[in-house]
């Protein structure tokens, strides 16, 4: 009646469903813990955002010799504490600062660009006080201008779990500024 094969199948299917139940429990309880810790309204401070803008003719930036693109380098200060994002189901937190803005020549576009990011592997290194740091990525748009329009800078996070769902959120401290026009002589043509 009960062959070795049947026993094996029975045990393995039981093990499989039990482990999936445990995984579901881990994912659900860690989500509840995040809600309880109120992480979806984490505070952050972005300040002292300043820029240096140049003109680029490379195709990579969407520029050409005739119509170069503005490419901005950003420096900024940031202050945040992501230790509440860490619980038993957090493998890493990915922190990133973005600039959000509307299109200028084409007002229908909505744009968002990462200027800085950081992989945070553990709770011990989740508090940051950054002053006067260089952004990792330069800022340029599909249009040739990026300066002189309101850009909203914001710090976001993304939790990479051990099991289950990836969770995204943003912090409350956002900052809207306009970048200064480049003081430049060699604006092509």
């Amino acid at each position: 009646m009960f062959s070795l094969n049947q026993r094996f199948q029975h045990v393995s299917s039981l093990a499989l469903s039990c482990s999936f139940l445990v995984i579901a429990l881990i994912a659900a309880t860690s989500w509840l813990q995040l809600v309880k810790d109120n992480v979806f309204e984490l505070e952050s401070q972005l300040s002292h955002i300043r820029s240096a803008t140049r003109f680029a003719k490379q195709k990579r930036y969407g520029g050409s010799a005739v119509n170069p693109t503005e490419v901005s380098k950003i420096r900024f200060n940031a202050d945040f504490d992501f230790s509440r994002l860490f619980n038993w189901n957090t493998k890493q937190v990915f922190a990133y600062v973005t600039a959000e803005y509307e299109g200028d020549e084409n007002p229908h576009t909505m744009n968002e660009i990462t200027i800085w990011d950081k992989i945070i592997p553990s709770r011990d290194n989740a508090t940051f006080t950054l002053s006067d740091i260089d952004a990792k990525y330069q800022l340029w748009d599909l249009e040739s201008k990026i300066t002189e329009r309101p850009l909203t800078f914001k710090l976001h996070w993304n939790i990479q779990p051990w099991f289950g769902f990836l969770i995204n959120g943003e912090t409350t401290g956002s900052k809207t500024i306009e970048l200064k026009k480049p003081v430049d002589k060699q604006k092509g043509k």
């Binding site: 084409n106 229908h108 576009t109 909505m110 744009n111 968002e112 660009i113 990462t114 990525y137 748009d141």
Partner: peptide, 8 residues
């Protein structure tokens, strides 16, 4: 890393 979305 970057996104440009055209609502129209």
């Amino acid at each position: 890393l970057k996104q440009h979305y055209d609502r129209s």
